[in-house]
Design a protein around this nucleic acid. Structure first.
Lengths: 331, 331
DNA sequence: CCTACTCTTGGAAACGTATCCACAGAATTT
DNA sequence: AAATTCTGTGGATACGTTTCCAAGAGTAGG
């Protein structure tokens, strides 16, 4: 039924070892390579990854663990990973943990045993939990940093400053910040960046929250913000910003005339909101692809993991996307 | 480094075949089973799933192919599949084909070879392409039907009728339908259902399109609809409906006072639109889980595939979710 | 007491692939 | 012309597991 190297070997009139070499880039004469390739094509031969994995010790598969695929942020990351994987012809297991840290660690153990490496989006597990559960050489953190572990992260502090500076340039002096979950790594980064403005940095930051990092969280925050003297809001992320826009519209507060709103992440919905959302763009699919790349390089190269910290902890730049939800401060 | 059955066999003083039997539930004396289990536990032995897969022919892994993970519709399906997979402890490869049919068929071939079965979301490939590329016993179509193939689909025609009947009950007599891609299976189902209303069925259906099944497609359709005598619109899907809402708002057309809008799919964004969208709910995560279940039953049961058509082509019900975007016809 | 049968166990084969090793012939050098 | 290196190829082996087969030890029945 299924074709094997033996079938190809018979069809091409060569031995199985020659077939294997021809297909995996070994030393073969151009003529026989041609013959073998043609035979393989004609028979519709596909190498059996399981068998290959058994002999090489590598499965060619990788794992991706995300808290929620429904969240566009993680969907984008997954998309980046799978796109890169498709290009290099390796498989990727995806596990959605439903925001459950225990399930996350469990998946980490399972996937760690059955793959060549795993990409982990874990905003909420503790550093200690991750250090204990993950193999530091075959696990890469996506959009999070833990000392000693491989990671790809965006420069969240810089993005936060970009957003605040944008609002300040528009004349805003009282800016509300809608904080997300306390235990989120990205959330702590944002707060650290905002601390710079705390003591006479030219803008007063009014902190609200923690709010749930969802549309509903934003809806809830809308009334809080309107009751405050803030003329602009930096939301924890785009979903929160969209909930906020929703509530502001319902309360009759014009955006950006009465109040400006800036989101974070630049998920695809951000351009579809009403009004279109000014937001901090963070690389998502690019981060996913880069994370996989980190593992692939390690596997491809002599197997020695990068030692320098700058090779183990990659930081990607953020950028502000100005749309219609931010404007000059009301007179 | 890693322990194998041989290590366990040595430690327990038995042969490898006995170890294998003891661990996989074969016929072994209680005493030796106890000994083997203890030795395995002590050595921290974990079976190599790759090797097991090679001999048994089953990997315990499944594949899921989607056109675009960024599309919430497919993200929901993926979520349903992974949730079920996590419960039964099997792995799922996810491939995003970026709406490319060729990549889809390629992925189908690759995954078909390396998994126990694949779940395929393919709105655009032709029946013939699918029949040729897919193993009819280990491939299940999600939200599409092709004669002779396993499938899980929603009753799209019924959903379409529910939407139209809802609008008719609100007094609408001229209803615009924003058709999607011509080559889409779901699109053809919708059109077939609408045909019932064509000849004096109590409502005049004005067809527009095909529009791109995206937010942009809806934006584009907004002006067309306003220039027509229609008082209500059934959009191809929720994304189109949201683009439509966006454009209608920009043009100053009140929804639902001036015109009613109904979407299709009930993606999570539908509740977040402005106004919240009335839409046809189709099971997504449930469909994903059911599709995986179909394959699991086949693998678990005596391996004989279901023969009756009703077991091979599962249809799930749809339902109308009434929110704020639909209202009575203007006077 | 011998046969027939069950139960348990070990040896060996098999799954499909990659790679080591040996070997033949060509190509190159001495 | 002989000796050496290089190139391409086939055969055999190994990866870790499951499973088939045969054989041994009991056990029950005639």
């Amino acid at each position: 039924m299924r074709k094997t190297v033996h079938d190809v070997a018979d069809a091409a009139g060569v031995s199985v070892s020659t077939v294997s070499r021809a297909l995996t880039g070994g030393s073969v004469s151009p003529a026989t390579r041609e013959t073998v390739m043609a035979a393989a094509e004609r028979l519709g031969y596909r190498p059996n990854r399981t068998a290959r994995g058994l002999i090489t010790g590598r499965t060619g598969n990788y794992g991706l663990i995300v808290p929620d695929l429904r969240n566009p942020f993680f969907a984008d990351i997954a998309k980046g990973v799978t796109a890169r994987a498709r290009a290099v012809d390796c498989g990727v297991f995806i596990t959605d943990t439903d925001e459950d840290v225990a399930a996350e660690l469990e998946a980490l153990a399972t996937l760690g045993r059955n793959t060549d490496g795993v990409l982990l989006c874990s905003p909420r597990a503790t550093d200690a939990e991750l250090l204990e559960a993950a193999d530091p050489d075959t696990t890469v953190l996506v959009h999070r940093q833990v000392p000693g572990m491989l990671s790809i992260a965006a420069d969240i502090a810089a993005g936060t400053r970009q957003a605040i500076d944008h609002l300040r340039a528009l004349g805003h002096r009282r800016i509300a910040f809608l904080a997300g979950p306390d235990d989120s790594w990205a959330g702590r980064q944002r707060l650290a960046a905002l601390a710079e403005y705390a003591d006479g940095g030219g803008a007063e930051i009014l902190r609200f929250g923690s709010v749930s990092p969802t549309f509903e969280g934003g809806v809830l925050a809308g009334d809080l913000v309107l009751a405050s003297p803030a003329t602009a809001v930096l939301a924890y992320n785009d979903l929160v910003a969209m909930g906020l826009l929703h509530r502001l519209a319902a309360r009759g507060a014009a955006v950006p005339e009465r109040i400006s709103v800036v989101g974070y992440d630049d998920i695809s919905l951000a351009a579809m909101s009403h009004p279109p959302l000014t937001t901090v763009a963070v690389p998502k699919d690019k981060a996913g692809a880069a994370a996989l790349e980190l593992l692939l390089r390690r596997a491809g190269g002599a197997g020695k993991p990068a030692t320098a910290v700058r090779d183990r902890e990659v930081t990607l730049p953020t950028g502000l996307v100005v749309r219609a939800s931010s404007g000059v401060v009301p007179a």
